[in-house]
Design a protein around this nucleic acid. Sequence first.
DNA 1: TATTGTTATACTCTATAACTATA
DNA 2: TATAGTTATAGAGTATAACAATA
Lengths: 162, 162
Amino acid sequence: MTFTYTGAMSRTPAPHAAPETPDPKGSDPTHVDLLERLARAAAGYYRDLTASAAEQGLTMTQAKVLILLRQPLPMRALAGLLACDASNITGLVDRLEAQGLVSRHLNPADRRVKNVVATEKGMEAVRLVRAGMRSTSAAFDRLDDEGRRSLYELLGQLHPEA
Amino acid sequence: MTFTYTGAMSRTPAPHAAPETPDPKGSDPTHVDLLERLARAAAGYYRDLTASAAEQGLTMTQAKVLILLRQPLPMRALAGLLACDASNITGLVDRLEAQGLVSRHLNPADRRVKNVVATEKGMEAVRLVRAGMRSTSAAFDRLDDEGRRSLYELLGQLHPEA
DNA sequence: TATTGTTATACTCTATAACTATA
DNA sequence: TATAGTTATAGAGTATAACAATA
């Protein structure tokens, strides 16, 4: 698997930049370099998600739950995907249910389990949240097709475990 | 600016996969495709950061603040970088100060401003948090040099505003 | 008047522990 | 016994509003 990058490896220098100063980022990025940029990208994503969710009257965590509910999921599975303690899911689902965005369905095969299902209103909220992520969408638009393909592949390799 | 990707554009099919079924991800990724992978990458980053910060007795937000404090920053600037209301910074810095990780310094030039400075203990905590992000570090290790360079460039283009 | 930081308040998120109902 | 979900509790994060000190 090979990525070949043929463009400039750093931002175009500003007109006033000293022409002979080597860009310290011209060499291979260290793990700390990568961590910094990943931190910025992740922060930008969540800032955009939080703002868009707020426009729909949702917190970021509520939006994350609705995005995860493409299929019905047991409460316990939600806790795993959110990487939080299971006791938090009760109140979280309570608040979403009070807004008519999800509903609990008992699993007849194992009556301990409750499956959480997004309602039509919940699915529409997800569509609106996604559509409202203007900053991230604009960032994708700034990439060319090859940039988007490469980003898609590379992101897929970062945290394949979840 | 051009990225050329010469590897397989999708996961190697499982042995049982129907050989003639075209992979829907073989074509250009849509914005929703990219959003999904960015969401996973961001979630993985924060999961790793949260776990590593917890090993140092810090919350994720406290770790974020310490990471931002490479230079002294006024409380107000911290609020901007964290994208939260300024009123929250008081308690946040209070708790970090109680642990000896930061300190407040009055700005003589404008006595309304308090600069927050990471102590040596705070800077050491940041180093330990970064070193403890094993999942993200392993993900970087799985990429080759070109993958890391491309990822670094592409992440830098995502949210350049902050 | 405007800005910085603070306080008070209320709600949400989160972990821990103990409980219930089911398996 | 073990697991799924709940409740109670406490600490942390967050927004809103009002305030004091300073510019």
